[in-house]
C-alpha cells in the first residue's frame, strides 16, 4: 500500500475514534478501550480488504465479518455510517432507547452477521458459514475478529480444531492481541503465550503484525484470496487496549469505560492521530 493511502487511512482511523465519541458519549454507554484497540483492524478490513458494495448491498453479495468480541461492536457503527451502509438517521434510530434495531437485528450487513458479546461464539459460527460457502463453491471470504482474552473460552478451541480439520482456507481470524482482559493483563491472569504457536499447533497458518499499522495489516491480508495453503489463517494483531487516548490506554479495569461529564471534552482534545 502506498504512503499516501496509509496516511489517508490513519486520518480515517482518527476520525472514526472521534465519531465513536460523538455517538457513544451521547448514548452514555459503550466500551471505548476495546473499540480503540481494534480501530486499525476494522479500518484495514472495511476500507481495503473486505469486498462489498455499499451502494448495492444484498444479504449475500459481500464478504462476511463476525465481530466475535462483541464488546467492540461499537466501532462498527461509525464505519457503516462512513462507508454508506447505513445513514446517519438510521444510526441514531438504532442507538436510542426503544429505537429501531431492525437493521442490525436482520444480520445482513457485513459486521452484523452475528449478535456478539457472549464471548467465544463467533468463530464457530464463522467456521460453519465458511464450511457452507465451500460446499456451495462460493468464493466469498469469512472474517472473524476475536479478542485475545476471549480465547480463554474453550469453545474457541473447539472451533479452531474444526476449521483446521475441514481446511477452511476461506476463514481469516484476526485476534486483537492487546494482552488485556477486563480485570488484568492476560499474562498475569492465565498465560496465553506463546499465543501464535498454539494456533500453529492446531493446524493454522499464522502471522504476527503490528495491529495499529494499517499497512502491515493490509499486507498480511494482501493475498488472502489467492493463498495456496488449505489452512485457515490467524493474524495475531498486536495492539494496545485504549490506543489513541493515553489517559485510558493499557490500564486494567477500563474495559467498560466511557467518558462522561468533563472527561468528554478532555477525550476529544486528546484523541491522537497515529
Amino acid at each position: 500500500m502506498n504512503k499516501i493511502r496509509i496516511e489517508e487511512l490513519n486520518r480515517k482511523a482518527h476520525d472514526l475514534r472521534i465519531r465513536f465519541l460523538d455517538i457513544f458519549t451521547a448514548l452514555g454507554y459503550g466500551h471505548l478501550t476495546t473499540a480503540y484497540s481494534e480501530t486499525e483492524i476494522l479500518v484495514a478490513l472495511y476500507y481495503e480488504v473486505m469486498q462489498y458494495d455499499a451502494k448495492d448491498w444484498k444479504e449475500d453479495n459481500h464478504d462476511f465479518l463476525f465481530m466475535s468480541k462483541g464488546h467492540g461492536a461499537g466501532m462498527i457503527y461509525p464505519i457503516l455510517e462512513d462507508v454508506g451502509l447505513i445513514t446517519n438517521e438510521e444510526l441514531h434510530d438504532m442507538l436510542r432507547l426503544g429505537g429501531n434495531a431492525f437493521i442490525s437485528r436482520k444480520f445482513f450487513l457485513p459486521g452484523f452477521e452475528f449478535y456478539g458479546g457472549s464471548l467465544g461464539m463467533g468463530l464457530g459460527m464463522a467456521a460453519g458459514l465458511a464450511y457452507a460457502l465451500k460446499m456451495n463453491r462460493d468464493n466469498k471470504m469469512v472474517f472473524c475478529v476475536l479478542g485475545d482474552a476471549e480465547c480463554y473460552e474453550g469453545s474457541i478451541w473447539e472451533a479452531v480444531l474444526f476449521a483446521a480439520h475441514n481446511q477452511l482456507n476461506n476463514l481469516i481470524v484476526i485476534v486483537d492481541r492487546n494482552y488485556m482482559g477486563c480485570s488484568d493483563f492476560t499474562e498475569n491472569m492465565c498465560r496465553l503465550e506463546p499465543f501464535d504457536d498454539k494456533w500453529k499447533a492446531f493446524g493454522w497458518e499464522t502471522k504476527k503484525v503490528d495491529g495499529h499499522s494499517i499497512g502491515a495489516l493490509v499486507d498480511a491480508m494482501g493475498q488472502i484470496r489467492a493463498r495456496i495453503t488449505s489452512s485457515p489463517l490467524c493474524i495475531v494483531a498486536e495492539t494496545v487496549k485504549g490506543k489513541g487516548l493515553d489517559s485510558v490506554s493499557n490500564i486494567p479495569l477500563m474495559h467498560g469505560y466511557m467518558p462522561s461529564g468533563k472527561d468528554i471534552d478532555e477525550a476529544y482534545e486528546n484523541v491522537k492521530l497515529l
Binding site: F107, E113, G120, M121, L123, G124, M125, A126, A127, G128, L129, A130, Y131, A132, L133, M135, N136, G154, S155, E158, A159, L161, F162
Partner: peptide
C-alpha cells in the same frame, strides 16, 4: 464436530445462516 457441543451449535448456526 467431535465431542464439542458448543461448537455443534455454533457451526450449525453458521450453516443455517448460509441457508442450509
Amino acid at each position: 464436530v467431535g465431542i464439542a457441543e458448543q461448537n455443534l451449535l455454533a457451526v450449525s448456526a453458521g450453516l443455517a445462516f448460509a441457508g442450509k
